[in-house]
Structure formats: C-alpha cells, structure tokens
C-alpha cells in the first residue's frame, strides 16, 4: 500500500492531478450545497456541456482551450441564471436547450477537423494527463476564492439559499450573490472538466450535497460534511483508478455512488429510530 502511494507521488502528472482534483472537489462541494438546495443542480450539468462545446471549438481553431472555455461558460452561467429566474422559457427546458446545442456544436467542430488528432474521449470522460501546470495555478486561486467567499459570506449564502425573497426584502443583494455563485461554479466546472470529463463533472457538485443531506440536519453540518465527502471520494477514486487502471472520472463517480448508498441507509435508519 505504502509503496503504491509513494509510486503515485513520484509521478508529477499524478501529483498535479491530485492537487487540482482535491481543490476542485472542495469548491464543487461547497457550491453544490447551495446549488442543490436552490434546485439549480442541472445548471452544473448544462454548464459542463457548454464547456465541452467551447473546448472542442477552441482546439479545432487552435486557440488556448482554457482562455476560450472559461469566459464562454461564465457567460452561459449568467444566461442560465437569468432564464431560470425570468421564466419565459422554464429553467429546466432552457438548460436542456443550451446544453444539447453546445454539445452538438462541439461534435460538429470535432468532426470537421477530422485530420487533426482530437481525442474526443478525453473531453467527454476526462483524463489525468490533460491537467497542466497552468491548471494547478488556476485551481489554487479558485479554491482560495471559493473558500474565502464561503467563510466571509457564509451567513448571507445561507440566507439567500434558504429564502431569497426574505433576504431581498431585508436588503441583501441576492442577485449579486447568485451571480458570484454562478461565476465560481462556471470556473470550477471548466477546471474540473479536464480531469472528470464533461459528462461526469456535475457529479462532484451534486453527490456530496445529496449524501450529507441524508444524514445531517443543519446547514453548517451539511456544508462541512459535503466538503469532507467530496475530498475523500476524490482521493479514494483516484487511488482505485491508479491501481485498477480504470478511468479516473468514472472511478470517482462510482465511489460517490457507494457513499450515497451508505448515507442513504444511515439516513433511513436514523429517521426510523427518530420516529420510534
């Protein structure tokens, strides 16, 4: 066991992936609690598809992938937020519309460049090798931003998550905090997408929050537990992927499924004993 861990840490690619992964999981879990409770989980999914489209187009046009993807996804996040709150097209339909469009554009771009060596598989399902030194720098900055925001605005994030109309009525600028959350979610998704793949990245946002909500019953404990679960599942999943030689993203999601089942059972037992 110790040898395998030492071996993992001797490969710079793996160390980079581990650093980025742990930080992205942490951010995704913190943002995820708020997104899941506000019924915005699908926004994460929609954004990852937009990210795929942007990455594919950028690669085909020979542009720096991150420099294109981050602003495009941020834009999409603001758009989705507006659509969900304005309600001309209902939120879920709007997300389906945008995500399938982005996916289609991405696939078209890749197919038109058929001479080029574009590995569509690694975009869709992630790859450890694609994590660059630049990603490490961005994810460290991002993680610091999310953590700082969470600690500093914790009370306000709780207020707008629990009851936006009350928060607005008592003078909290809910729109500003919603935009901030959307912005950080967009950046988290783009960075995490390289590692997890655009099809799987939204699991990092949804699973930890859903797991901890089974068992914990206050906002603070749910938030802390999500962060712990998220980092733990990432590390375990990555370890399994290394030993069993399975794809990293899928391994992590599978560990999350196991965690979810465990928490679901604990939650069911707890609520039964509470009623008894």
């Amino acid at each position: 066991m110790g040898e395998i861990i030492a071996e993992m840490f001797s490969a710079p690619v793996l160390v980079r992936a581990l650093i980025v992964g742990v930080l992205v999981s942490l951010c995704a879990a913190l943002l995820g609690v708020s997104l899941v409770l506000k019924r915005y989980s699908m926004i994460g999914d929609g954004l990852s598809h937009v990210g795929f489209g942007a990455l594919a187009v950028a690669t085909v046009m020979n542009l720096a992938p991150m420099a294109v993807a981050i602003p495009v996804v941020i834009l999409a996040a603001f758009l989705l937020l507006r659509l969900s709150s304005n309600g001309k097209i209902k939120g879920d339909a709007a997300i389906a519309l945008i995500s399938t469009s982005a996916l289609a554009i991405g696939v078209m771009a890749v197919s038109m460049s058929s001479g080029m060596n574009v590995d569509i598989n690694s975009y869709l399902f992630g790859s450890i090798i694609s994590v660059s030194g630049g990603d490490v720098v961005i994810s460290v900055i991002l993680a610091l931003a999310v953590l700082l925001m969470f600690v500093f605005f914790y009370t306000k994030i709780f207020a707008i998550t629990f009851d936006e109309s009350f928060a607005k009525a008592t003078g909290t600028n809910a729109n500003l905090y919603n935009m901030l959350i959307a912005l950080l979610t967009a950046v988290t998704i783009v960075i995490g997408m390289r590692l997890m793949g655009s099809m799987l990245i939204s699991s990092l946002i949804i699973f930890p929050a859903l797991c901890s909500m089974r068992v914990f019953r206050s906002f603070k404990s749910v938030t802390i537990c999500s962060a712990v679960i998220s980092v733990a599942t990432f590390v375990i999943g990555m370890f399994i992927s290394y030993i069993a030689d399975t794809p990293c993203g899928a391994s992590i999601v599978c560990v999350n499924i196991v965690f979810f089942v465990i928490f679901f059972v604990i939650g069911a037992v707890m609520s039964r004993s509470r009623k008894a």
Binding site: L37, D163, A167, T170, S218, K220
Partner: peptide
C-alpha cells in the same frame, strides 16, 4: 424547496438579523 431544507431552527431564526 424550503419544506425539506436542512437547517436548524436557530440558524433560520438568526438569519433575520442579517439586515
């Protein structure tokens, strides 16, 4: 969304002080 929100009663009540 509120009806099954995981928050303790004291967390909810004190959020009224935010203003």
């Amino acid at each position: 969304a509120q009806r099954d929100f995981p928050a303790s009663v004291s967390e909810v009540v004190i959020s009224g002080c935010l203003n």
